[in-house]
Amino acid sequence: MIISSLSRTTWTFLSLIVILSLLQKNQIYVHGFPTETCSSRDRKYTHNGVCCYMCPPGYRVESHCQLNLDDSSCKPCPQGYFQGDWNSQTDCFRVNLCNKSHEHVAEEANKDGTSDNTCACDVGYEYSGSGERCRKAALTVIVTPRSHITDVTTTNALSSSSWSWFWSSSSLLPSPTPKTGSKVSTGDSSKLTIHILVALLCSFIFFVILGLALWRYRKKIRVCIKQQENRKQIGKACIFAHMFS
């Protein structure tokens, strides 16, 4: 009986030692499968054989945990420093000042210490080389062909204005015909029509007045010629009569 009780006590003690050793290794196995792990994927880390929880972004570890699966003591990052992820670091990273040559801060870091400054090169410069320094960008010339529609519109505008001026000066030429496929606006066509009508009307009035004047003048000349023939002499008043007889 004594021997059996001692053997049971021994086995119990050995089992406790095995369990404690597994705990120190941060995992307990049941039927060959782990039931608890200490991994960064679970926001945990191992320190001196003890599994501790990480500190959140914007904080650093001030002191590690002493008990398994316990929280570490975290402290916020000071101004000008940051931690962008869950971490087990005892120090924060210094914020990038973006003070290299031809470099500036494109986006400022968060005030809670959870992000870094975003840097960018000045206009006309780009990052190059292993040092990530800003160097003058290569000159790139982009040639964009002029649009066919733009050319046609410009040509039509010039031709329309030219025709309008020409028709305001002369009414004896045929009506201009736009090229096939060109675009002439309604306003331009109406203006051109008005110019044509005004020119035709002015021409008609001019020829009517000129015809009446010639007819009246010719009548007076005939009368003058008859008077001079009766007097057997040609006076100065009818000196141009022979030109129209």
Rank of each mutant, 00 (worst) to 15 (best):
L6F: 10
L6N: 07
S7F: 09
R8C: 08
T10K: 05
T10V: 11
W11E: 12
W11H: 07
L14T: 08
L14F: 10
L16S: 09
L16I: 15
V18I: 15
L23E: 10
N26I: 02
Y29C: 00
G32L: 03
F33V: 12
P34R: 00
T35M: 13
E36V: 14
T37H: 01
T37D: 10
C38V: 08
C38G: 09
S40F: 05
Y45K: 05
T46G: 02
T46S: 14
G49P: 06
C51M: 04
C52M: 05
M54E: 14
C55Q: 07
P57R: 06
Y59C: 01
V61R: 09
E62S: 13
Q66R: 13
Q66I: 10
N68V: 01
L69W: 15
S72A: 14
S72N: 04
K75E: 09
P76M: 05
P76E: 11
Q79E: 12
G80M: 05
G80K: 06
Y81Q: 13
Y81T: 13
S88M: 09
Q89K: 13
Q89D: 12
T90Y: 00
T90R: 13
R94L: 06
V95M: 03
C98Q: 03
C98K: 01
S101W: 03
S101H: 09
H102Q: 13
H102S: 07
E103C: 06
E103M: 10
A106E: 11
E107F: 08
E107G: 00
E108Q: 12
A109I: 02
N110T: 07
T114Q: 02
T114M: 04
C119A: 08
D122C: 02
D122G: 08
V123E: 13
G124N: 09
Y125S: 02
Y125E: 07
Y125Q: 04
Y127E: 11
R133D: 13
R133I: 12
R133Y: 06
A138S: 13
V141C: 06
V141H: 06
V141A: 04
T144V: 15
T144F: 00
R146M: 07
S147F: 04
D151I: 14
T153W: 07
T154D: 14
A157Y: 04
S162W: 07
F166I: 03
W167F: 09
S168D: 10
S168N: 11
S169T: 05
S170D: 12
S171K: 02
L173A: 08
P176F: 03
T180P: 00
S182E: 14
G187F: 02
S189N: 02
I194T: 14
H195V: 14
I196Y: 07
L197F: 03
L197G: 00
L197S: 06
V198N: 08
I205D: 01
I205R: 01
F206K: 04
F207C: 03
V208R: 04
I209F: 10
L210N: 02
L210G: 00
A213T: 10
W215R: 10
R216Y: 11
R216N: 04
R216G: 04
R218Q: 09
K220H: 08
V223T: 08
V223L: 07
K226W: 01
Q227R: 14
Q227Y: 03
Q228R: 03
Q228C: 15
N230L: 10
N230T: 04
N230P: 00
N230K: 12
K236S: 06
C238D: 04
C238V: 02
I239K: 11
F240H: 12
M243N: 05
F244V: 15
S245F: 05
